[in-house]
Every structure is written in C-alpha cells, then in structure tokens.
Amino acid sequence: MSAIRDLLTALRGRPGVDAAIVVGRDGLVIDDESRDGVDRERIAAHAPALLTAGDDVGAAANRGALVTLVLEHERGGLAILSVLSRDASLLVLLDPSADAGPLLQELRRERARLASLV
C-alpha cells in the first residue's frame, strides 16, 4: 500500500487539495490523506451513488462508463471523482483557490499508472 500512500501524500501536498481519498466501489475508504475536519467516511459513502448515476448518464447518452466526475458546490471548491479500476476510485476535494485544470489533465494522462497502484 505504500504506492497508494505516496500518491495520496503527493496529491494532498498540492496547493488547494483538502483531501485525496481512495474509495472502494462499496463506498468504504481504502486509504486517504485529508485535512482535519474532512469526514472521509461520510464523503466516501456517497461515491457508489455518484458512480452509478455517472454510468447511467453515460449509457443514456451512448458515451460509455463514467471515467471522471467533477462536482462544484455553492460554497466553493470542487470534488473530482476519478475511476481507477472496477473496484476503486480516487476522490479529490479542492478548495476554491485550487487550479483544477492541471490536476484533471494529470489524472487523465496518468490514469493507467494510477490504476496499477490499487
């Protein structure tokens, strides 16, 4: 698991990243790095519903399975859910000051390598 830990530590070290959580398809936390006050278990518990909804939209639009989901909330900040494998996803919480563009590009570019870690 040290490879996962290294990934999470690197992500959490980026400016504006409040949490990096690897979550199982069952909604349980596999591993995480998060700032104090982030309710990682509660957040992770919602991942299965998000994944299912994303897959359903993709099927209805004839676009295939969900790969990445970006959520923006009224008090600012983004949540990025990136599917790594059939059994695990990466959930990254960004504060409003974070630049999500480079992170999204990196997640897309490194998807296969990240998937090999879980």
Rank of each mutant, 00 (worst) to 15 (best):
S85K: 03
D18M: 10
S82Y: 09
R12C: 00
D6E: 15
S2V: 08
R63E: 13
S89L: 11
R86N: 06
D87N: 10
A98S: 03
L78A: 11
A47L: 13
A53H: 11
L104M: 10
P102N: 00
L107M: 08
R63Q: 15
A47C: 09
L81D: 11
R40S: 15
L84H: 05
L69W: 03
S85W: 06
L66A: 13
G76P: 04
G27L: 02
L11S: 10
R42N: 04
S82K: 09
V38L: 01
L78P: 01
D18I: 00
D55I: 06
L69H: 04
E72I: 10
I4A: 09
L69E: 12
D55K: 06
L66H: 12
Q105P: 01
R5M: 08
D87C: 03
R86L: 08
R25V: 14
I21G: 03
R86P: 02
G58E: 09
N62A: 11
L66R: 04
R113Y: 01
L50H: 12
R113H: 08
L66K: 06
L114W: 08
V57R: 13
G16L: 03
P15E: 03
I21M: 04
S89E: 12
L51N: 15
L71I: 10
V22I: 14
L84Y: 11
A59S: 14
D32C: 06
L71Q: 13
S116C: 01
V22P: 07
D26C: 05
V29W: 01
D99M: 04
L81F: 14
A98D: 01
A59G: 08
R14I: 04
L117I: 12
R108F: 06
L51R: 15
E72M: 08
R40L: 10
I30S: 06
H73W: 05
R109T: 13
D55Q: 05
L90A: 07
A60T: 06
A59H: 10
G27P: 05
R5G: 03
V22W: 05
A20Y: 03
H73F: 11
R109V: 08
H46K: 10
E41H: 11
L8H: 05
L91N: 02
P96E: 07
G37A: 05
S116Q: 01
A3F: 05
R5C: 02
A10L: 08
A61S: 10
L81H: 14
V70G: 02
L104C: 03
